[in-house]
Nucleic acid binder design. Structure first.
Lengths: 248, 248
DNA sequence: CGATACCTTGATTCGTTTCAATAATCGTGG
DNA sequence: CCACGATTATTGAAACGAATCAAGGTATCG
């Protein structure tokens, strides 16, 4: 859940108004069942949010990073229904919800921004539901990579090369696959030359191909063609008349 | 997205403040790309909301009914990203967003209620993501039925017997399955006696079993045991130490 | 440096989709 | 009112994709 970078809003001096807190890798920002009091804006670092189902299985819901908003799930019931964990050392801005709503009265733009942020998160989750409901394993992994690329790019980092801060298991949980399938799919995308994978380092080589990906040729079909390059060429031909993919 | 029934809020006379509109079965309330101006509260009737992906496939996102809120997806980008279709004749309350935010300033409770509603919808969608990421076909269908049962019950209707207003295809789209799998799963649940299915009429016979369902015995295993009753008994034994299932 | 967590890859199994054929239901107009 | 076509639902058989089981390899952290 991204919020606008501090700009010309009436509360641009939020660094003064709101306290910061640091969390170390592995620390929990809030836990399931904990009373809701604060929202948190990520100032730096990487996190995950997870739900725990009846059997104790973790399900990853999001990977918040700089300028994303945390803790909104607690507004409704006054208790958090998910937990947030730091995947790296983090610096978070504390936003007491009471204070926020109070400020909203004097600064209508702030209130409006909150509606916007929550609405956007709703739309993002809808896209997620759509993906989980319709896409194959390859499509999910591809969209996940594209989404990361877009977000890193928005943060001013390279959209071509980046490090995954999460494990294959966490990725799989996020996009509804097993860690083995994630690993295999990354290898397949590597094999056809759309990305390059070295452990947690990802290099995107053909972002458009990833954006438009619906289904990959089978491993058997790939072996029949001799070179990865030939397959890649065939794929891009096949995809020329595919519409612009919706962003994750 | 349910909103509180009109009670002692300062805007309890919403019937006066806000206009009603009727929609006939099949009519669209709003379409994708349409400029956002209004929210809609369902006063009566049943609807579906859908996204259309790049290839023109419909994906069902929700089945709003009485007291649910429609159109929130448009707040963020000022355009609707989904469309809402009436599955039966409907009566909707029009809520111009401008008017709502204006009223929010004089009635802080209203503004707070909006945050609550949006937060709840966020949590609901998270549960949906969790379901799509982890549950088998049987689990999904079971949760879908439980969810409908709960909602009908909240609306004062029977939680035991109700009519599905949507097709198997729409159900499948909603929970990420093909219509054939939905049909087969309903038949299987019927066979073991947890529900009774006759076309669109569903009778829930064992709500708790449905709530706790994770996986059904295979059709082969079911045939080995002679009677459906024996299987049902085995299943409930197997489920006695399952925790309370989270509601959809 | 050793222990542990994480990743890759292969073989096999299992569940869901796909394809296909039949049946039931609904709405509509003769 | 019934016949008609169209939509919706059921069921079976086969194909496919992802999960599971299993083993070996590689990074990471104390």
């Amino acid at each position: 859940m991204r919020i606008p970078a501090p700009n010309n809003t009436p509360v641009a001096n939020e660094e003064v108004l709101f306290q910061h807190v640091q969390f170390k890798t592995g620390q929990r920002i809030h836990t399931i069942g904990q009373p809701f009091e604060m929202l948190y804006v990520v100032n730096s670092g990487f996190l995950k949010t997870v739900m725990i189902d009846e059997l104790g299985n973790e399900q990853v819901l999001s990977f918040p990073m700089k300028s994303d908003l945390l803790g909104v799930d607690g507004i409704h019931s006054k208790f958090h229904t998910s937990e947030a964990v730091a995947l790296s050392d983090c610096d978070l801005i504390l936003v007491p919800f009471k204070k926020l709503t109070a400020l909203g009265k004097t600064y209508p733009e702030l209130e409006h921004a909150m509606y916007g942020v929550m609405s956007r998160e709703l739309v993002r989750e809808q896209a997620m539901i759509c993906m989980l409901g319709t896409l194959s394993a390859e499509g999910r992994v591809a969209r996940f990579l594209v989404s990361l690329s877009d977000r890193f790019s928005q943060m001013g980092y390279s959209h071509r090369i980046f490090n995954l801060r999460m494990t294959r298991h966490e990725i799989g949980s996020y996009i509804g696959l097993t860690l083995e399938t994630v690993s295999r799919t990354l290898s397949a995308l590597h094999e056809i030359g759309w990305i390059s994978v070295d452990q947690k380092t990802i290099e995107i080589k053909d972002l458009n191909a990833l954006r438009n990906l619906r289904r990959l040729p089978t491993a058997k079909a790939r072996k029949e063609k001799k070179t990865a390059a030939a397959v890649a060429a065939a794929m891009s031909r096949q995809q020329q008349n595919a519409g612009q993919a919706a962003s994750l």
